[in-house]
């Protein structure tokens, strides 16, 4: 596989990544959201694999395997179990309506590309053009956390943000050192479990996972 072809493949998967980020932003159903999250993980793993193959960075194989294991299989499975247990399969509400969110998202993407342009100039990796996409998916996931009203989509937003971060690392510098990646992956996993435990507590307290109820917690 020559460099230009693999570069184009990486670009393709990066586009998938961004597309899925937008899809998640517009998705109302929790189940579909989890499925999209798994797909995003798959796209991430695929692009990492291609980068690993074309540049010969062996530790990226491990990263790709880790991504498949955690982000395509384990975490979605945990999330499925969670919403089964919590009985929260219904539609999710957003704070801002979806078209407006999409518009803001487009603005963020433009901003992310403008931000990434000078860095991409300096980087000499095959994947340098995807840095803007990585930035954009981080920001979009963040936006999703802000506009969602229920706790589970917010956590998915948080996890998706980590995907974007991981992608940014791969595209800018062929990935972080493996130790760091392992650490981050473990953190995300542990974070998911902790969130799960919190959900049960929140629901016990308020009989709902709607985070509006938490406004009562502030001091007056």
């Amino acid at each position: 596989m020559d460099q230009t072809f693999s570069g184009q493949l990486v670009n393709l998967f990066a586009a998938f990544l961004l597309l899925i980020a937008f899809a998640m932003l517009s998705q109302r159903r929790v189940l579909t959201l989890i499925r999209l999250f798994a797909w995003q993980g798959a796209a991430l793993a695929a692009s990492t694999l291609i980068v690993a193959y074309s540049t010969g960075q062996t530790h990226l194989y491990f990263s790709a395997a880790l991504a498949v294991l955690l982000k395509v299989m384990l975490i979605p499975w945990v999330l499925h179990r969670l919403i089964d247990r919590l009985q929260v399969r219904w539609d999710v509400e957003t704070l801002i309506n979806i078209p407006a969110t999409m518009l803001i998202g487009i603005g963020l993407v433009i901003f992310a590309f403008a931000l990434a342009a000078p860095i991409s100039e300096m980087a000499n990796t095959v994947t340098r053009s995807t840095l803007g996409i990585a930035n954009a998916s981080v920001l979009l996931s963040f936006l999703m956390m802000i506009v969602r009203r229920k706790a589970v989509p917010q956590v998915i937003g948080f996890l998706a943000m980590e995907n974007g971060l991981f992608f940014a690392a791969t595209s800018a510098t062929y990935g972080m050192p493996l130790v760091v990646e392992l650490g981050v992956a473990l953190d995300v996993l542990v974070g998911t479990f902790i969130f799960g435990i919190f959900f049960f507590h929140i629901r016990e307290q308020f009989d709902s996972l709607d985070i509006r109820h938490m406004e009562k917690l502030k001091e007056d």
Partner: peptide, 20 residues
């Protein structure tokens, strides 16, 4: 201090954008 998580997230989001 609004007590809404969305607002708090928005604070860190805007801070992030501003810093960038």
């Amino acid at each position: 201090q609004q007590g809404r998580i969305s607002i708090y997230l928005l604070y860190s989001f805007l801070t992030l954008i501003a810093l960038l």
